[in-house]
Design a binder for these strands. Structure first.
Lengths: 346, 346
DNA sequence: ATTGGTTGTGCAATCGATTTCAGGAGTTTC
DNA sequence: GAAACTCCTGAAATCGATTGCACAACCAAT
């Protein structure tokens, strides 16, 4: 009686097929290196024993985990979860596992990532957070560690890291120009987090657009925000307290735009009748908000996919790539109903 | 000259501290089993060499990966990403890694999970998807594999799996009763996916509430849906084509409620003036939608946390737990502005 | 002085795969 | 018919930790 006591190993297969473990290993991972007969015997033995590879053992020997670590500032944010979705899909296709590190509220996040990477649980790091401690990351990326690393979404300036992102400056400029084209001359901006690169780029694009149309950039029309709905909501109150108000606002992202509109509505301000608002991201809800949001659509799936591809390519090529990789994707203006011509003073 | 050629191993530490690797291992993982002097020497050696544990090697020897696999139907869905957030936080606290398997559009998902688990990359499985092939899962959970498994959010009936979920039936009943209490007598239901357990439970709660108030359940007022915005949007068109329309609708979740409202708006139907709608989940956007959504709030963070806890407890206890664990959390009605008294016929 | 117990440490086996090296068998080449 | 090559296979080393077992050293009790 053959009692199965634990998951079968390559030894069991070898015994059953009457070959050595070396041959089993070869039969499974490079079938053309064994004879047809052996290959068949091994296949049969695998079938009978119900053998499955112990990935841990392979990882130890091959020094690769076939796993990538994805670090993101906040999974709950629908923008990042979309990207994670694309990354996971791409990784799975290529036989990689995906470990997630959610950095929201984590203390010493960069260090946590470092420990993770040095523990050999993952082969490469996909960073979706640009706010991490650069020296720590850089020491990770340099010899002796040389951890393969790709930054996506949020650039880390002067880091030399491979990067995949969207052209936030130009996209913000485009969004603002849309408002200008509609006839708006008094335009405000709902800011992202102060130290966030993406937020800065969007502000830069915003001011560039104003400048190109000879419109003044009014500091008092830069509304505090941090990409979250609640911050947009809070800014609405501030907006109401202003003596002079812009007729249009470019919000740094959809979430804050939605919070902002929600806040305004409480004060009887209707969009687009009284104010035009353009967002950024084109979250799923943007199309179904009331009013449907005009916004810059970021190619999220594409971005996630390309970032994952870039990282895995990095992992699989033999010699280290010399030049820094930099991919910039374009965003697209989606015009819906939250923007219109200015026509009322209030 | 001591050149660092690769990441230092326990051997390097041992050599430096002039002890055996066994002692280093003990000094690090059970410090009270070595003498104070050795402990200090080892610590120093670790510091100098920059040693970090190779988790893969430990995993191989100890036959535990200190990693859990979280399987979810769709990460992009804000409901699941919230749960994942809580799970990740809890797991990290206890020193576990989190691998994600996004099952959206995956073929043979149950089998994919099986391969994953049998490859020893994860110690336990947290299932957030109730639609998987039960026999496959059951064979995983039974000897000889005995994979620790916890199901959350979506129950798998008669499976005997440990489960953490919310009381969907009662919550749906509560939501419907809210509409009845407001005076509605003609109430419809925007369904979830036909074969989804959660959707069925919510339908059950809906009909129970009607029954208890002696209101008829009209089949033609059960609107097709699949939890997604687009399906709610599509149902709005169908709604408009009906001869007799309900004055209120209980939507199976917030996303479909939002799509539905968005569709209705296109036809000039205003909420809550012309119709009352109550949703389910209390997604972040619910509070800031126009109108703010009345909805059943699910304790998502709690749910994720408890599910993760349950799984890790399972992993860490020596003898297998006998009784099936079953935790049911309560949802809470959040009344906002999408519901009101019925007052117009249309 | 013997026994018994505790403490601290090292040797070597072990986890389950891959891979290097060597060699036997068969085939081709000159 | 010897040399050179190819093809296939197995023995054993290896990846980097943990752990069972043995034992030395020390202390306490009889």
């Amino acid at each position: 009686m053959t009692e199965i006591r634990k998951t079968p190993t390559i030894q069991d297969v070898a015994r059953f097929a009457n070959v050595s473990t070396a041959t089993v290993s070869r039969a499974l991972s490079s079938p053309d290196r064994v004879s047809e007969g052996t290959r068949a015997r091994v296949s049969e033995a695998v079938r009978v024993t119900g053998y499955t590879l112990n990935q841990t053992a392979r990882s130890l020997r091959q020094r690769t985990a076939r796993t990538i670590l994805v670090a993101l500032p906040d999974i709950r944010n629908s923008f990042f979860s979309s990207i994670l979705d694309a990354v996971e899909r791409e990784a799975t296709n290529r036989g990689y596992g995906v470990l997630v590190a959610n950095l929201f509220l984590a203390q010493a996040p960069a260090q946590r990532l470092q420990e993770y990477m040095l523990s050999n649980r993952a082969d490469g790091l996909l960073l979706l957070d640009g706010s991490l401690d650069v020296p720590t990351l850089q020491s990770l990326a340099m010899p002796p560690y040389s951890v393969p690393l790709v930054v996506a979404c949020e650039e880390i300036p002067n880091s030399g890291f491979h990067t995949v992102l969207t052209d936030n400056v130009r996209a913000a400029e485009r969004a603002t120009r849309h408002l200008i084209d509609l006839g708006h001359r008094n335009i405000g901006h709902l800011l992202g987090p102060e130290h966030n690169v993406v937020a800065r780029d969007r502000l830069a694009g915003f001011s560039a657009a104003l400048r190109m149309s000879n419109l003044p950039l009014r500091q008092d029309w830069l509304l505090r925000g941090n990409f979250e709905m609640e911050s947009g909501f809070a800014s609405a109150a501030h907006f109401m307290s202003m003596n002079e108000r812009p007729s249009a606002v470019f919000a740094a992202n959809d979430e804050s735009a939605i919070g902002f509109l929600s806040g305004l509505r409480q004060h009887g301000i209707e969009c687009p009748r009284d104010i035009s608002v353009v967002g950024f991201d084109d979250l799923g809800v943007a199309a179904h908000y009331t009013p449907p949001l005009t916004t810059m659509r970021q190619p999220r799936e594409m971005l996630g996919r390309m970032a994952a591809e870039a990282l895995m390519d990095l992992l699989e090529q033999v010699e280290p790539r010399q030049r820094q990789l930099r991919i910039v994707l374009n965003s697209e203006l989606i015009v819906r109903e939250s923007t219109g011509h200015p026509h009322s003073e209030f």
